[in-house]
Each structure stands twice: as C-alpha cells, then as structure tokens.
Nucleic acid binder design. Structure first.
Length: 308
DNA sequence: AAGACGAAAGTGGTTGA
DNA sequence: TCAACAACTTTCGTCTT
C-alpha cells in the first residue's frame, strides 16, 4: 500500500484516513481521495447458490441507504402464494397487498427523488461518501417517521446533509448548503433542528478548528499561517472566548490575526466572505482575541519589521 | 480611494416565567 | 405563549493608511 501525501484536487495537506470506512478524505476540499482501499466491516460474500433471500438477510449486509430501498425490499407475498389460499383469505391478501403497495410506493417514490437530489448537492459540495451515506440514512428515517410532511423534500435533504457533515467533522456552513441546494438558509436551519430533535440525533457543537483548513485554503494562506491560526484558536478556547459564539466567526478571526502575524495580510472582507460572516463579527472576535491573548506583542513586532 | 473601526438599529432563535 | 436576551447582521459615518 502506498501513502498519498497531498490532495490531488487542491494540493492540501490535510488528508485524513478513516479506517472504518476505508477512506482517505481531504479535509480542505472534502475530496474522497481513495474510498476502496479495503472493505472493512463487511463479512458478506457471494457464496455459491444460496437463495438470494438467505444471503441478503444473514448479516443484513451489504446495505446502503443511498439506494432507495436500501437494497432490501419487502413484499406481501408472491402470486404463487395465492394457490395456497381459500377465497376468504384471498380477499384479505389483496387488501393487504394493496395497502402495502400504496405505502411503500409512496415512500419509495419520495426516496428515489430525494436521494437523487441528495447526491446532486453532495457532489456539488464534494462531500465524502461516508457523509452522503449518513445523510441518506437520516433522510430515510425522516421519511419513515413522516417528518417530511409539510416541508419541502429539498429542505429536508439539505438538513440531513448538514447534520451528516457536522457529525463527520467536515462541517459546511449553512450558506454553502444553501448555495448548493437553492434552499433558504433559515429554512435549512429550521428543518435541520427539527429533524435532529425528532430523530434524537445528538450533534456535538461544531469545532471552529474544523473550518480553519478549508477557509485557509480558499484564501490561499500558507500552512504555517494555518497552524498558527489553530494555535490561536486553542488559546481562545482556553480563555473561554468561544462558547456561545458562532464557530465560523471565531475561525475567521483566528485566521485573520494569524495572517497578519505572518505578513500575509487579507482584508477583513476577504476573510469574512469565505467564512460567511460579516466584517463586523470578525472585528468583534478579533478585538476579543487581542484583549484576552496578548497578541499585541506579536503584531507590534511585525509592524516594526515592516516599518524598517 | 480602500480598508478598518465602531455605533445604532434590526433579525431570528433561545430561554425562562 | 410571551418577553427578555445574546449573537449576529445591516447600514452608515468617521478615521487611518
């Protein structure tokens, strides 16, 4: 086996190996560099001529939520079963099958459409397969619990994706989801909260550090600046400047300061744009950072250097 | 002229009575 | 269910480079 050191897509250095899923993910751009290294976690094999149903159900694997019926279908009987029934039971049989058909086709139709949309948005954002899979699972559960009723399918898809991103620590901002899906930001936020609450999905508060790599690369900042930003961030967390604040704002401010220190100045506007916050927020965080962590020293040093 | 800074008013969400 | 509240945004005027 060989090791990839740089992301072929964006040349980022933040490659992340997920052993369970057998994936290498670039944390900068979300590209799945290699997702078929080894198929971990799968004990299912094609054995000679077992009947399909036996095989499928022995372990329940492989099962994928990105297929509309998860690779498992349920049917009420086959035509052949009819011959075994009397006429009373035959009516019952037809009724049941009709209901089954109605319910399952409604859900399946919905899932087919929704999963197509989900894949579209996911590939637009270059999300790793594992995230897509998780989002599909969340969506499927949402449909089965009837949570889509009264909401647009697309918004639930976006909400599921957003939740999946958070859980996999490759967060995208609501703005990015919004751009990719064409759904309003607040709508995505609303359904996201609703769905996670109803399904009892717990989401850790997102860590600002997860955003740093991506923001830094779209601002074309060096690796040193990036790691300095992470340091600043950690200090900030230690000084309890982070709780209750929007993670993107903090990530943006850390990057801004770090860029100043390393003489790679970016304007507040540039940083604000990639982070999806306003300059004002950056200023506020920035001010707090300067007050609490005496970064003044470092900044003054830099100023002197430039002054020469 | 562009960027940085800060004040003031508005928005949407959370919380606690 | 409503009001208070904190974070964040929008807008705009002023200062700095």
């Amino acid at each position: 086996m060989y090791y990839i050191k740089k992301c072929p897509e964006c040349s980022g250095i933040n490659l992340f190996v997920n052993r369970e899923k057998g994936e290498v993910i670039c944390k900068d751009c979300g590209l799945v560099v290699e997702d078929k290294m080894v198929e971990f976690g799968q004990e299912w094999r094609e054995f000679e001529d077992d009947r399909r149903s036996d095989r499928v159900r022995r372990t329940g694997q492989p099962m994928t939520y990105t297929q509309f019926d998860q690779g498992l279908g349920t049917e009420v009987g086959q035509k052949a079963d009819l011959f075994a029934l009397g006429s009373k039971d035959r009516n019952k049989f037809f009724r049941l099958r009709k209901w089954q058909y109605r319910i399952s086709t409604a859900i399946e139709r919905n899932l087919k459409l929704a999963l197509a949309e989900l894949k579209r948005v996911s590939s637009y954002l270059k999300l790793p397969k594992s995230v897509e899979e998780e989002a599909a699972m969340i969506y499927t559960q949402a449909v089965q619990r009837g949570l889509v009723r009264g909401r647009s399918m697309e918004s639930v898809v976006s909400g599921a994706l957003y939740a999946a991103c958070r859980r996999h620590e490759v967060p995208r901002t609501l703005d990015e989801l919004s751009e990719a899906s064409g759904i309003e930001k607040k709508e995505i936020g609303r359904t996201y909260r609703f769905v996670t609450r109803e399904l009892g999905i717990t989401i850790l508060p997102s860590n600002p550090a997860d955003y740093i790599a991506r923001f830094a690369s779209s601002l074309k900042l060096t690796a040193e600046t990036q790691s300095k930003a992470v340091e600043i961030l950690e200090e900030a967390q230690h000084a309890e400047l982070t709780s209750g604040r929007g993670p993107t704002g903090i990530a943006a401010a850390s990057l801004y300061v770090s860029a100043l220190i390393h003489g790679e100045k970016r304007t507040q506007r540039e940083v604000a744009d990639v982070a999806g916050v306003t300059e004002v927020t950056i200023r506020n965080r920035y001010k707090e950072l300067l007050e609490k962590l005496d970064l003044d020293r470092e900044l003054k040093k830099i100023k002197k250097k430039i002054g020469k």
